[in-house]
Design a protein around this nucleic acid. Structure first.
Lengths: 156, 156
DNA sequence: CCATTTCGCTAGTTTAGCTAGCAATTGTCA
DNA sequence: TGACAATTGCTAGCTAAACTAGCGAAATGG
């Protein structure tokens, strides 16, 4: 519906092009993740879990099995199996939660983090290459925009 | 590894923040798609197929079952089943290819497109709301950047 | 302090991916 | 042109990974 608007002003047109670029970009990210899952011999969900753990540890937040389930929007039962897989393959460890005896804390192993960055490295390099061509002000603008967009789409 | 660089210059720092924002944004998109799959009572792959078909038809390109398989990085056998599902639920139609008698052309039904935009509409509105706060030049910059990034990640 | 909720798990079922291989058609090149 | 290889989409059968239902242990709150 909204897509079939004939844009009246240059601004509308620019917005429409941007929305289209966002979709294409998000799709490219999906496909990159699809490629990585092949390279690392993992399925998409397991890989998404690693990405989540890496993001969370960068923010200094701890992650429970429940958090994983919520993040991936799968059931806690499926999450148990997922963590069994990742645990068996040495990617994560289940540690006891310091204060809640029911709960667990999921932590990445060093090997897993290293493997991830080894496979992700090339893409990261490419992305950095693109970003390097922009000025600091432009980078700040891009960061701000993506942040706002993420906030609107998924107000965690 | 590259993540653990201590950024030396303001530029490096800005780049790093941007890369982090990209990951967070891509993750937010994933989770939005996860939400939509619940709303539309479809699985992630089927929904990704609809998104692909919508993007392709906007570009005026036709889509074969093979294209779907390549795009989603799944086997053609899985694609057959996927199209069976989408066809049974009235989302797509398999039309004969005009010149190649082996091939098919996959087209979205009008109902499917309408349903998609009905569920996607709110998010689209929100995203437009964010984009509207930027000037035309800024929008152009954002569009260009996302395009370049997509190109690097997934040089289709 | 008892009722309710939360957390992670097990068991069993269903879904959706995979490999292998097929017939029909198309492309290639001796 | 005729033979041979490649491509397209499909079926059959198998496996992986999601789901629902429900459980015991721990935490929370009237």
């Amino acid at each position: 519906m909204s897509q079939r608007w004939s844009p009246e002003t240059p601004h509308d047109k620019a917005v429409m092009q941007l929305l289209q670029a966002i979709r294409a970009f998000s799709d490219a990210m999906d496909r990159m993740h699809g490629g990585m899952k092949g390279d690392m011999e993992m399925n998409a969900t397991d890989l998404a879990t690693l990405r989540m753990l890496i993001m969370r540890e960068q923010r200094g937040e701890s992650v429970s099995p429940h958090d994983v389930a919520r993040h991936l929007r799968i059931s806690t039962a499926s999450t148990t199996k997922l963590l069994d897989r990742l645990s068996a393959s040495g990617h994560v460890e289940r540690r006891p939660h310091p204060s809640d005896k029911r709960a667990r804390v999921i932590v990445l192993t060093d090997e897993s983090r290293a493997t991830f960055y080894r496979h992700f490295g090339d893409r990261l390099h490419d992305m950095r290459g693109v970003a390097d061509r922009y000025t600091d002000d432009e980078l700040a603008l891009l960061t701000r925009f993506l942040g706002e967009l993420g906030e609107v789409l998924d107000p965690t």
